[in-house]
Amino acid sequence: MSENAYDDGRRETIKIIGAIGIQCAFPFAGDELYGQHQHPAPSRSADPGPPKFFTPDQFSILSRVTELIVPGATNAQVPNYIDLVVRNNEMHKKTYTDGISWLASKDFIKLSEKQQLAILEPLCAEVDRGEVKSMEQKFFRVAKNMTADGYYTSRPGLVEDLGYMGNQVLAEFPECKLDEH
């Protein structure tokens, strides 16, 4: 962002307004003018911390599931985010415990990626059709929701993957270039 450009634009527009000459009913005194506006430096990422609810075995299954739903989820600390959300919610605790036990009973971690997908992809298709009744379906629905939420609120997901550009100081709102492409 260019603070100087903003400053220059600002002086220019004051002149334009003066020419229109709309009467100011409540003028501020000079000493009440605001200082030059700056946005803070790019923000830090908070660490959701180590898992407190899931056991190490449960956590590795969860991590694998999130990674298969959204590749890059573990790098974005999505499993840690999920642990933080789940640990305070009894309903979620049961949903995850049941779902992860079910996967553990299939030795999920030791399966090949192809075999893992053969378990999860049909489940995903059912959930996409709106079938959320069985324990496995409920688990997948909630896990997908939280994986998507966690990933797209992380810096890797929101900024690096999607390319979020907002939160900037713009001197002017950019005109749409829709018809130029």
């Binding site: 100011c24 003028p27 501020f28 939160n167 100081v169 713009l170 709102f173």
Partner: peptide
């Protein structure tokens, strides 16, 4: 959309 009343113009941050 223009500075006025001693208040600056919007900077379109979306918040």
């Amino acid at each position: 959309t223009r500075p006025k009343f001693g208040r600056p113009a919007c900077h379109y941050c979306g918040n």
